[in-house]
Amino acid sequence: MGMTLPLFLLAAAVPLSVGAAAAADITLSTTGSSKNVTATLLSEVQSIQPGQTLWLGLKLEMAQGWHVYWKQAGDAGLPPRIKWSLPAGFQAGDIAWPYPTRFEAGGITSYGYHDRVLLLVPVTAPPTAAAGSMVPVSAAVNWLECREVCIPGKTTLGLELPVKAAAPASNPQTVALFKETRGLLPRPARGWTFESSADHVFLRPPAAWKAPSTPVEFFAADDNVILYAAPQAADTGAGGWRLSLKRDPNGTVPKVLSGVVVSRRNGAVEALDISAKPKALK
């Protein structure tokens, strides 16, 4: 394969060995830190099955008050990026992003995460992966951590997984975090539409969606459409419930309005991944 193994930082507290059934030299997670963020690469399972997809996670743990960004940062900021080094035939897919939080300071609005986030990435093995071989996985990660000021962070994380013919066992160290994170992923929802006026986009839900009594937030996935800092007002008129989004005056009306709709009802969060289609203004 001719791949050089990366240097990686080991935090003393991170255990390197797994359960009794695994060989002692299997590394399932490595760690690298910047001033305010600790990055760890985790595997959901303990081995790779030829031709199958497994999930890895980039965990970013942030010091109090610091945040990192969503795939669309908003007014300012920069999303975390991963550059994978994998053996031939292996493919890493796009990051699956948990739903974000809004950050506001001095009229600047950004989207991202605080405390801790696990960014999920699918990795698919070729059917020709040889059982008994070890697969080194390397991720060159960079991010921007911000509080009042911003600091770029970067590290290279590596782990090694064995290829086994059988379906892999879950990793007891990480299984709970992966499960929790899956619950934070927006679920695809169809039937949303939008109308546009000279300075607004009005987001409309499908008939079956019930509006909560609490505020609904829309996180735009694409830039140059709405003003991130503008208040999002929900109102219900003859045309039904709609969310008013102020347009970016230098933006364009999109062909599809993509993003995440987050609402809270009965203490639970509903996060919907929508691709709203345009409709004539009512």
């Binding site: 506001e104 609005t109 505020p215 609904v216 208040p231 929900a234 109102d235 219900t236």
Partner: peptide
């Protein structure tokens, strides 16, 4: 018919 205006977003 019914107008419920719920504002989200701070500034």
């Amino acid at each position: 018919f019914a107008v419920a205006v719920v504002l989200f977003g701070g500034a």
